[in-house]
Design a protein around this nucleic acid. Structure first.
Length: 105
DNA sequence: GTTGTGACACATT
DNA sequence: AAATGTGCCACAA
C-alpha cells in the first residue's frame, strides 16, 4: 500500500460537490493537516486521476486559480468551473457562494 | 542525508 | 496594499 499522504488529499478533492470549490488549506485541513496546503498542490500536480480528481475545483485562499494550473489553457479552467455552475471572473470565484462548506446537501 | 523547489497560508515588514 | 519572510510537508537531484 503505497497510498500515503496523497490519497487522503485525493479523497477530499474527490468529494467536493459539483458547483463548489475548496481551498488548498480547506482540503489540507480536511485531509488532516493545515500544513499540507503545499502538499495538496503537489498532490494535484501529479494528479494520477484527473477524471476523479477535479483539480479545477481546488483554488487558493483568495478563491483564485493558479497560473501554473493551466494544464491546457487558463480558459479551460474557467469553462470547466462555469460548466459546474461556478461563476468565474479573471480566474477568481465568489468564495462566499461557492467555497465548499462541508454542506453536502 | 542535505539542498532546492513548489498548483499554499499566515505573519511581518 | 504589495513584497518578503517563515512554517509546513513532500519530492527531485
Amino acid at each position: 500500500m503505497s497510498q500515503n499522504s496523497y490519497e487522503k488529499i485525493y479523497e477530499v478533492v474527490k468529494q467536493i460537490p459539483r458547483g463548489q470549490v475548496a481551498t488548498y488549506g480547506q482540503v489540507a485541513a480536511l485531509a488532516g493537516n493545515n500544513r499540507w496546503a503545499r502538499v495538496v498542490g503537489y498532490a494535484l500536480h501529479v494528479n494520477p486521476d484527473p477524471e476523479g480528481i477535479p483539480c479545477y475545483r481546488v483554488v487558493n485562499k483568495e478563491g483564485r486559480l493558479s497560473d501554473a494550473f493551466a494544464f491546457g489553457g487558463v480558459n479551460r479552467q474557467k469553462l470547466l468551473l462555469e460548466a459546474e455552475g461556478v461563476r468565474v471572473v479573471d480566474n477568481h470565484v465568489d468564495m462566499e457562494r461557492y467555497q465548499w462548506k462541508k454542506m453536502t446537501f
